[in-house]
Structures are given as C-alpha cells and as structure tokens.
Design a binder for these strands. Sequence first.
DNA 1: ATGCTTGCTTGGATCGGTTCAAATTTACAC
DNA 2: GTGTAAATTTGAACCGATCCAAGCAAGCAT
Lengths: 352, 352
Amino acid sequence: MASRATVKLADVAREAGVSKGTASNVFSRPEVVRDEVREHVLATAKAMGYGGPSVQGRLLRAGKVNAIGVAAVEPMAYFFEDPWARALMAEISAVCDASGTGMALVSAKNQQKLVWNIQSALVDGFILLCVEGGEKLVELTRERHLPFVALALGVDDKSIPTIGIDNIAGASMAARHLAELGHRRFAVLGTEFSEGGAGLLTDEQVRSATFSTSRDRAIGYWRMLAEFGVAPESVPVYETQDVASIRAAVAAIFAAPEPPTAILAMSDRVALVAMEWLAEQGLRVPEDVSIVGFDGVKEAELSEPPLTTIVQPLAEIARQAVQAILQDAVPVERQSIPLTLAVRASTAKPKG
Amino acid sequence: MASRATVKLADVAREAGVSKGTASNVFSRPEVVRDEVREHVLATAKAMGYGGPSVQGRLLRAGKVNAIGVAAVEPMAYFFEDPWARALMAEISAVCDASGTGMALVSAKNQQKLVWNIQSALVDGFILLCVEGGEKLVELTRERHLPFVALALGVDDKSIPTIGIDNIAGASMAARHLAELGHRRFAVLGTEFSEGGAGLLTDEQVRSATFSTSRDRAIGYWRMLAEFGVAPESVPVYETQDVASIRAAVAAIFAAPEPPTAILAMSDRVALVAMEWLAEQGLRVPEDVSIVGFDGVKEAELSEPPLTTIVQPLAEIARQAVQAILQDAVPVERQSIPLTLAVRASTAKPKG
DNA sequence: ATGCTTGCTTGGATCGGTTCAAATTTACAC
DNA sequence: GTGTAAATTTGAACCGATCCAAGCAAGCAT
C-alpha cells in the first residue's frame, strides 16, 4: 500500500475525470458540486485510498492553523506538573474548547534547529508563561512575528503585550489581612528576585530586583505593614528557588531570637513547603504561626490546614489571553486583573 | 506597516539581487552560501522586516510537522485535571522533550468542521487516550491515515495498534495481596463496564462488558480469589461513573449485613473517593477496612493513608507510544507492559 | 429561434517555501 | 594562459491544496 501515501487530490481528479478545482470543491464545499459528480468523485477517492485533503496543503492556502501555542522556558512536563501552570492550562483549555481552537505545547528549553520550538511551532499565536526567563521568551517569540501575550511577566516593559495582576495590591491585601488579625512580627518568604539568587535580601536588593513580580509583592507587603506601624526594616525578606532553599529560609526565619507570628509567602508553592517544614518541627498553623500564600492554586484548598491566599482569577486571565490571540488584538499596554483574598484556616489571631 | 505581513522570501531575494534558491539557503542551510552574500541577504531581510521562512511553506515541502497529537474524547482540560491523564502526559512530555518533538492537544468532543480536531490537527501522528469512547476515537483517527497508537483501550480488537497493560494479571496481584493478608470478604468497586452504567452487576453483565479493561480487572480479581477459596459469587461488583455513583456504591457495599473487610478498587480515583466516604463515616483504613487501588497515580501516594495500588509503568508506556509514532512503527498487535504492586498503608490484616 | 439567467466546471494562478541538476564562478596547479 | 576540481549560484519543478475569473450548458421567457 505504498501507493496510498502518494495519492493526492490531483490524482483523484484525473482518475474521476474532473478538474482539480471540482475535486477540491467536493471536499471543501460539497454543496456547490452536482450530486452525481460528488458521489462519483467520493467513490473514486475511496477506491484510491485518498485520505481527504492534506492538512498542510490546505494550511498553506488558508494560512490559519486554528491553534495557539503555550510556551514556557521549562520542560514540557511543567505544564502538567506545576500547580499554577496546570490550573492556568486547564482554564486556557476551557476557553479554547469553546472556540474550537487547538493547543500546542512549546518548551523553550530546547533551542536546537530542526526541532519543535517557538520558531517552528505550527500555531497562530502564543501565550507565554513567563514565570522564568520571561524576557528571553519574549525575545524569541518576537522573531516569529505572530501575536502573543505574556502572562506572569516578571519585568516592566511597556513594549511587551502583557496580561497581569496587580502584585502590589494583592500583596497589600495579604498583609492587611494579617495585620488586622493583630500580627506585628512578620517575615516574607519570597520567590526569585534575580537569576539564581537565594537567601536573606537587603532592602536595596529587593528594590533593584530583576523580577518585578517578587519586587512588587515585597513592596505591597511593606507598604501595607507600614500603615499598621510595622517598619519595613523589621520584616526580613528571603529569596528562594528550589525546595531546599525554601526550607533553609524558613529554618533561618525561625532560628531568630524572636521569630515572627506570621509568614507572608509569595506563592502557594513556597507556602506549602513552609507548612510542611513547620509541621515537621511541631509548629502548628495557625495556632503558633499564621501564613498566607499567593496564587490560589487548587492544592492550597486541600492542604492541612487549608491555606489562606491571594487568588488569581485564572479563568479571566485565560479568557483575555486567548481572545487577544484569536482576534489578533493583543493589548498595547499591560492589562491588570483584580485579585481576591481567600481566607481559609492557615491564619488566625496571634497567641497572647 | 501593512507591507510587513506580506514580505516573502522571493521579495527578499529580488531586493537582495539573488535567486530564490540562494535566499532559501541563507536561512535553512547557511553554511553553503558565501559569507558576504549571506550577510547581505540577512541585512536586506532585516531591513524589509522579513520574519524568516514561513513555517507553513516549509512544512508543505518537508511534510513533517515534528509534533504528535494526543487525543481523548474529553474536553481539553481533562489533560490537566485527570490524575491519570496528567501523569501520563507528563511522561509523554518528557519523551517528546528528549526528541525535540512537539505536542498538540486534541479533544474529540468537538467534531464540527473548521475547528481543530482529529481531522485537522497538524501533527505527524496520534496517541489516543481511549479511557472513554475509545472505539469512536480510533475510527476517527483511522480516517486521517496517520500513525497512531491507542492507550488504555477498553475493547479487544486485534486490528487496533495498542499499548496496554495486563489487567487480569494486575488485578490478580491486588487480590493476592489482600488474600495473603488474610482477607476473605471482598467487594469490588468498579469503573465503567458499559456506556453510562452504574450499580451492582451480575456475573453475566461483568463477562459481557463493553469495556474490557473493567471486565479483565474483575476477572483477575475473581480468578485469584478463587485460588484462595473465595467464590466469585460472594464478591459483589459495583459499576461506577461519577463521584455520586461511587459514593452510592460504597454506601451500598457497607449497608450489607456482613460488610467486606477489603475493597478492590478498579482505579485510584474510585479508591480515593471511597476512602473519603469511609473517613466521613468514621470507618478507619486500614484498621476497619483495607483497600487497594489501580493505576498508581501521584495522589495515591499522598492520600491519608497512602494507598496500596497496582502501579502502571507510565514512563515505559509513554516511551513506547512516542517511539512508535516517531518511527512510524506502530505495533501490529497489542503490546503489554508489566505492572507492579505498591504496598502502602491502606491495607493490613483484617481485624480479629 | 433568440436573449438572459442560473448553476456547475474548468484551468491557471497562488500560497511560501525547498530541492536539485545544471550553469557559473573561483581557486589552484601546471 | 589553460585545464580541472571545488565552491557557489541559479532557475525551474514541486509540495498539495484553494481561489477565482471565465467558459459552458441547461432552463426559461419572449
């Protein structure tokens, strides 16, 4: 059946005794061709083992793939394993499903030629998950000359179409919640501020961070705490990367002579790791220490205790992002979407 | 800048004063063209705002997309939400990453024309997750005349290239484990046996099930239990679908005058739902009742208590599936991959 | 019969590149 | 200055369809 592989529309047309144009119509606009001709062509096609119009041929003409690519500077498994990415992908999927749009996964880790990557992915546009290496990702995508929007972009660059959240406002909400409960001794368990960093940060390091996401959250915490009379200098900020660095940070925080009564965590992931560490040490949440996360991933609802956190409206972010790509109407400036505070059981009034 | 959209290779070639062929080489085989010519063409291209060779044009010639599609008769969010699918996708991702292959998600729920679906997805082949509606999915895919392998196919059909697991052997392992612990009263908490069914099944209904996955697991349980002197008739089999039907089934099981001391669950998902129900009822696992799952999803390790289960070697399944597609060497007959028993804390000797 | 619609068919242009045999240029030895 | 091999460049053919202006036949009114 080697022949099958090479049967093309033109062959069918010739065999059926009609023109290529008519044969094409039989498949893509059946209503314009006379019934008996259509039947005959269809029969011939089947007999020859023709598998319908080749997608690539059609594509070349149409120019539209009907799919959007989602890219990150992470291995592809990231899309299925990272809680935030997964939740976001599920929302993006739902929007795509509704509009009959396909999704392709792209990992920007692999930059060899001849492989599937940002340069070669067959898509109509990109949604970029910029949690890490966002700028590099944007740069690569620009070359493709396709519409794209950056999500969770950690840098301020007016020229990049971005849909984001107001990190300062979100962090402020988290801080206000704890302050209103009566907490006055805090520590910030941060995410990444600059390429590969970890450990206790100075005020100066925080303000000059490479990643604005972490910086803004820190600023949001500080600003709100100041309103409650808590001096920023008294609130240590720890930068973290992997699980080990998170655990090291929490350990450092609680090694202090007067440990905090509340932890401001810059992501649910770090919050959950911290809670694990606390449980191991016999420290109870929220009795001994309160903790509030950031992101609002599913896991935060199911943890023990359920984590109070700032939840991102992922569905809305997904909707706007997909729409922007499909309509080739990417936002000219950063779109900000409001956050909400979900109060659960990891926060309570401080002891005494 | 409307012009930009239409700058093509031929334009650049003309402007730079070289032939289309040379211009093409500049981009796809830069080493064959003289340095100064290459520089010049590149400069011209940049000046004209040419965004590199269009992927679709190249595709038409090359014929290879460098991506595989993963399809299921589920909304696309399924790939990110269902524990089994997610775990499998992560493994498939890893294999694809290693070979520079892209992944596209396809939902066969949406069968309108003009949308991204099995007929139109730009991929080199398909991996089908046949947990539900597997046959329909296979049929649709056949029309595409592309290589494909079915995973978790629930029917016996020698003509379908399938990579699967030995459900009978796996179920036997689960049953042996419980029997060796001393259990003699069992109930089977099943998955789907036929389109939309639920509730207690007769022996006859089990044997004539539409989905061989469920049937084989039931047979595996029965067969091994018989070796320990437990009559199949004494082991009720409940079919389940959604969470409500699972809960109803467990409730029915424990409403019996002499409830079982051990539950054989046909998937980790039903096992976890059952454990939730048991906890609500104040029944302790494994003290009051032992339970063993099937699949070996991540959640089963993290549950309270961790679930004893039959784990599927998803990494191996993924590897074989992807390789089969990439090399266009789909198995001619069903490939079976061995399972292992992971003994954790949800099983123990029966009381008294 | 003639003129005018209406409805299907046709063939060639086009989408945007890649490929390869042949032509041309360059390099080098004699 | 000439011959030959090696390095580049060219131009036409091709990938597999869709699109569209133009052609043609049948149907209908006058």
